[in-house]
Write a protein that binds this DNA or RNA. Structure first.
Length: 876
RNA sequence: GGGCGGUUAGCUCAGCUGGUUAGAGUAUCUGACUUACAUUCAGAGGGUCGGAGGUUCGAAUCCUCCACCGCCCACCA
């Protein structure tokens, strides 16, 4: 065996296994293994940049399950890939261009797209490399991108099918327009933030009585330039008689009518609403209903156009001020009130979006939503935690049509061609048409726009498997099992995948949706590059190791994760602990029989209690961990592992057997428990476990494909665990006592134990050595009856009393007060218990087990008090 | 305006169907170089479980109200 470093050298080892796993293609899934499939599709990271801590968390969670299921004997497919992220990626490349002083319009569409593909290559590759560094056991040769040729076909197919079904239509509506990205957005892509704005009251004079007028209230005064009516509610007595009157629109001099519409709330503002049909969704509706004129006052970049009179050429916010100034001058502005309201912002560039009238493509959502609602209602798809079900349902039940066209270049070009003759119908086709089926013209132009990124992402669970081809992969691996993502994309992605899965595959895309929290800094702020509070996962891997990153992210974490750099120490230390425990065992493995099975401990004569105990503890832990993984209770699984491996195995078992390595049984048991622990820990910390596994099991192949150990229920021995617990408590009490009296480790003590219980005496006798070693004793006496000695310190564990003669070392007075303190503590408990046991209602109504348990407890406490009192009387 | 989540030790979190004296890790303090590991070992201190009511023999746990923090949704201009 080679000499092992005293530290787990993760830098070398992580890289070594990354390369080997990939070279040996260990994570490649086959369709003909005869095993049951278990599939996860990765939420494809955007190729906008590199991975952040949220990705690290997301992928760790997936990898734990996938590695676990692989060991459980499933044919596991974890499908990796990346997303082209239309607007977002185009934005970063535009920024890059801007540094060269260029705009995308300075390049041809082709040249611009070439730059995007270059970007995609660089960042897509980096992302995949980073995923590998994290230990993600994805099926790398299958890696997909949302703009692969095959994937593009799937997108087109979906567009054509939905169009033919009448679920895709084109029309002029008010959409959310980002003036910076220069594109339409869906409702979900407009993020609403509360803004401290103002409510401006503007008087619109009557045509026949210019000194009087109707006052309207607005938050966007500049839009008045496009007003074509003022609306009131006919139930509003104040304004009832004004309906039909003509007003003069200030600054523009346009005649507009007072109309009546139910949408108007008499209680808000003045109860009269200016109507701008081209710049507000409500007003748009009213405009349609009342046949109003639609006046668009904005260029696509939110600069006012020639419909804006004197304000033409101004930016919208500049125009707002100018309009207000002009209104003030004309005495039209009556008052200004502070007003908080929610304003939509572009989710990619955070610019305030503008409700904008334009012609776009939409998907009719109601028919798609219906089966998707059913699937969740019937429990075919479950959300973890459960509460997200309601969020999903609420959105689905009030779903609105989805604007899918984007006026950008990076993405799936809309598969629609227009004939030179405008009267011909648009041609929606999977392939480029050569001529118009209606008029035969060959002068056709493809729609300039591309599709919303999510219009491709929603196909991810089946398009990555080859759809629309009826591929073997698709048949075998679809539907997938579980999906891991953040709650903020339930609407964008999760809900839409469910709809697409049901529509195009006739089957749900996954049965479990696990929603994990957001990674935040210690102040609770979201980690982001712009805030400068981001911790780079790669830096953590470099400094602490990938296992440490994975383990630390999850242990002791709540819903949202509050992360500081120090948090990663726990994982690093634990990996190191595993490493060193393994070293110890490997150094003492001369007589290990590789075929030894833990079930055999039943047949080992004189098997010691600690061994029975550690085996029992292992299987109890394994049971807990397996269940926790199945239920997505990650933190709990890691806690159990940590507690077992460090707390039980290292701190107690290995300490106890340190001087028993000559015994082959001990070697075998320690070795086997280690080996099984490695398997149990592997999904969480793949690198350290693989490294040690490879050293102790040369030739057996990677740990990745070892079977997950079955729980041997008959080796879970509660009696052994209880007896060992007594030993542990004895040692702990003695250590405690030593520390109280400042007894140096080199200074040995003696102890006189006694108990009325035969079992206790037996237990003590058979564990003399352990007690002596772990509590640093040089003498130990066990008696049935206590011999009262003067000037001793005392420990009491259940029925066992231990007297430690420390005459020369202790201060009798202080020991007395220490024991009196303990008596006080016990008395407090005993008083409460006694009162409860005197309570007739308690005796009558509480279950018998509880009453019995309490009685027994009181008895043992009282015994302890009695014993302690005796001790006090001997201290003089 | 509607909805959801949180509030337990200085910090991060457990505490699942109510039943010991509310637990870990970390930080703090004390003591140890005990040849697997100082990324270690041993020990200690530290909480009236956000507040107020209620249900119950019994509440951190169930109910009601309140407070604060966070998130999501919403066409009152």
């Amino acid at each position: 065996m080679t000499e092992l470093s005293t530290r787990f050298n993760f830098r070398e080892i992580d890289d070594k296994w990354c390369v080997r796993w990939e070279m040996e293609n260990l994570f490649h899934a086959q369709t003909d293994s005869g095993k049951e499939p278990y599939t996860i599709v990765i939420p494809p990271p955007n190729v906008t940049g590199i991975l952040h801590m949220g990705h690290a968390l997301n992928n760790t969670l997936q990898d734990i399950i996938i590695r676990y299921k692989r060991m459980k004997g499933f044919e596991t497919l974890w499908m990796p890939g990346t997303d082209h992220a239309g607007i977002a990626t185009q934005n970063v490349v535009e920024k890059q261009l801007a540094k060269e002083g260029k705009r995308r319009q300075d390049l041809s569409r082709e040249d611009f797209l070439k730059r995007l593909w270059d970007w995609k290559k660089e960042y897509g590759d980096t992302i995949i490399r980073q995923l590998k560094k994290l230990g993600s056991s994805c099926d790398w040769p299958r890696t997909r991108f949302t703009m692969d040729d095959q994937y593009c076909n799937a997108v087109k197919e979906v567009f054509v099918r939905l169009y033919e079904k009448g679920l895709i239509y084109r029309g002029e509506y008010i959409i959310n327009w980002c003036p910076r990205c220069h594109t339409a957005l869906s409702d979900e892509e407009a993020e609403h933030h509360e803004i401290q704005g103002s409510l401006y009251y503007i008087r619109y004079p009557f045509k026949d009585n210019p000194d009087k007028g109707l006052t309207v209230a607005t938050t966007r005064p500049e839009t008045m330039l496009g007003d074509t009516a003022v609306a009131v509610n006919k139930k509003d007595k104040r304004y009832k008689d004004l309906i039909g009157k003509t007003l003069i629109l200030p600054l523009m001099g346009r005649e507009i009518a007072v109309i009546s519409d139910e949408l108007v709330d008499p209680a808000f503002g003045t109860g009269a609403v200016k109507v701008t049909p081209a710049h507000d969704p409500n007003d748009f509706e009213m405009g349609k209903r009342h046949n109003l004129e639609f006046i668009n006052i904005l260029h696509p970049d939110a600069v006012l156009n020639d419909q804006a009179g004197d304000f033409e050429g101004m930016d919208r916010f500049e125009a707002r001020e100018a309009v207000l100034e002009a209104l003030r001058e004309g005495k039209f502005l009556e008052k200004t009130e502070p007003h908080t309201h929610a304003v939509g912002h572009c989710y990619r560039c955070h610019t305030v979006v503008e409700p904008y009238l334009s012609r776009q493509w939409f998907v009719k959502m109601k028919p798609l939503a219906k089966p998707a609602i059913e699937a969740v209602k019937k429990g075919k798809i479950a959300f973890y935690p459960k509460r997200w079900t309601k969020v999903y349902m609420n959105w689905m039940e009030s779903i609105r049509d989805w604007c899918i066209s984007r006026q950008i270049w990076w993405g799936h070009r809309i598969p629609v061609w227009y004939c030179e003759r405008q009267s011909c119908k648009p041609i929606v086709s999977l392939t480029t048409p050569s001529n118009c089926p209606q008029c035969g013209s060959t002068n056709l132009k493809q729609d300039e726009d591309v599709l919303d990124t999510w219009f491709s992402s929603w196909l991810w669970p089946f398009a990555t498997l080859g759809w629309p081809d009826k591929s073997k992969d698709l048949k075998y691996f679809y539907p997938t099992a579980s999906l891991f993502t953040a709650p903020e994309i339930i609407f964008f992605w999760v809900a839409r995948m469910i709809m697409a899965g049901l529509e195009f595959m006739g089957q749900i895309p996954f049965s479990d949706v696990y929603l994990h929290g957001t990674v935040r800094d210690t102040k609770g702020r979201k980690m982001s590059k712009s805030l400068g509070n981001a911790i780079d996962p790669l830096e953590i891997i470099e400094e602490y190791g990938a296992d440490a990153l994975r383990f630390s992210l999850i242990i002791n974490s709540g819903q949202d994760l509050f992360i500081s750099k120090e948090k990663f120490e726990i994982g690093r230390n634990f990996a190191n602990k595993i490493w060193n425990a393994s070293r110890l065992i490997m150094m003492n493995a001369s007589a290990v029989d590789p075929s030894f099975d833990l079930s055999a401990i039943k047949n080992i004569k004189n098997i010691n209690l600690p061994s029975q105990w550690i085996v029992s503890r292992f299987f109890s832990t394994l049971k807990k961990v397996s269940l926790a993984i199945e239920q997505y209770r990650y933190s709990e699984a890691e806690n159990s592992i940590y507690e077992f491996f460090w707390g039980d195995f290292c701190d107690w078992y290995l300490e106890i057997v340190k001087d028993q390595w000559d015994d082959p049984a001990i070697q075998n048991i320690a070795f086997k428990v280690l080996e099984l622990s490695l398997k149990m820990i592997h999904p969480f910390m793949p690198f350290v476990t693989e490294e040690i596994w490879s050293q102790i099991n040369e030739g057996k192949g990677s740990i990745c494909h070892q079977p997950w150990p079955p729980v041997h229920k008959n080796l879970i021995d509660n009696a052994a665990e209880a007896r060992m617990q007594t030993v542990i408590e004895l040692v702990t009490s003695l250590r405690n006592l030593r520390s109280q009296w400042n007894i140096k480790p080199q200074e040995k003590i003696q102890c006189f134990f006694c108990s009325r219980s035969k079992e206790d005496l037996e237990l003590l006798k058979s564990h003399e050595t352990i007690l002596m070693n772990l509590a640093h004793m040089n003498g130990l006496t066990i008696d049935k009856k206590a011999v009262e000695r003067k000037n001793t310190a005392t420990v009491i564990v259940r029925m066992i009393k231990g007297a430690v003669p420390l005459g020369h070392l202790i201060n009798i007075k202080e020991e007395k007060s220490r024991i009196l303190g303990q008596i006080g503590q016990q008395k407090k408990a005993s008083v409460g218990l006694a009162a409860r046991l005197k309570n007739k209602d308690f005796l009558k109504k509480a279950p018998k087990e509880v009453v019995d348990k309490e009685k027994a407890r009181l008895e043992s406490i009282n015994t302890k008090i009695k014993e302690l009192k005796k001790v006090v009387s001997c201290l003089s």
